[in-house]
Simulated scan of single mutants.
Amino acid sequence: MEKIRAFIEEQFLIEYDESFPEDTNLFKEGVMDSFGYVQLCRFLEQEYGFRFTEAEMTGNVLVSLTQIRDFVARKTAPTASSGN
């Protein structure tokens, strides 16, 4: 998950620290706009091998590093059953 932090810091020219915690809303702080959001989503799809649904893309769930990590963990977690 450190790749996500490194991507955000490099892509959006920020550094997470005590004055800019990982739960900071990147949109509200003016760090990320809609174009940056699409870039982030594409990076996550390529890096972690999943696809966003339309609802996930437009649901605006990925506004902080904390939320992004939680989302990726859920998307990449093995499913409990295969339908039987």
Rank of each mutant, 00 (worst) to 15 (best):
P78V: 11
N25T: 08
G83H: 03
D33S: 10
Q11L: 03
E56I: 04
S64C: 06
E22I: 13
S34F: 09
S19P: 02
D23F: 10
I8E: 00
T24Y: 05
R69H: 11
A77D: 13
L44V: 03
T66K: 14
M1G: 12
F52R: 02
F12P: 00
I8H: 00
T66E: 13
T79K: 15
M57C: 05
C41Q: 14
R42F: 08
E15V: 09
E54D: 12
S34I: 12
F52H: 04
N84E: 15
F35C: 06
M1H: 09
E56Y: 03
S64H: 01
V63G: 04
G30Q: 06
G30M: 02
R74H: 11
G83P: 02
S81P: 03
A80Q: 11
K28W: 07
S82L: 15
K3I: 08
S19D: 14
T76L: 13
F20I: 08
F50H: 01
E47Y: 05
I14D: 00
R5E: 15
T76H: 13
E54H: 06
E56T: 05
G36I: 01
A55F: 09
I68F: 02
I68C: 01
Q39G: 05
S82A: 15
A6C: 06
R51D: 12
P78L: 11
F20S: 02
A6P: 02
V38S: 07
L13Q: 15
P78T: 08
V31P: 01
G49F: 12
E47S: 13
I14G: 00
E18A: 11
R42I: 11
L62P: 00
E18Y: 07
P78K: 15
L13A: 15
T79I: 13
Q39R: 13
G59N: 06
Q39A: 08
E56A: 03
R69T: 08
F71Y: 14
Q67A: 14
D17Y: 07
N84F: 13
Q67N: 11
A6R: 13
V61D: 11
D23Y: 12
G83C: 07
V38A: 13
E22M: 12
E9H: 07
T53W: 05
V61Q: 09
E2A: 10
P78C: 05
Q39I: 05
R74W: 06
V31G: 03
Q46T: 04
D23R: 07
T24H: 03
N60F: 04
A73W: 11
D23L: 10
A55Y: 05
T79Y: 08
T79P: 03
A80W: 07
N84S: 10
F71L: 04
G36M: 02
G59I: 12
F27W: 14
L62K: 01
F52M: 03
D33N: 14
F7P: 00
E10F: 06
K28R: 12
G59K: 05
L62F: 06
F35L: 14
E45L: 05
L40Y: 06
V38F: 06
V72G: 00
G30H: 02
P78Y: 08
Q11P: 02
E9G: 11
F7S: 01
E10Y: 07
F52Y: 13
Q46A: 12
F27S: 12
D70W: 03
E45W: 07
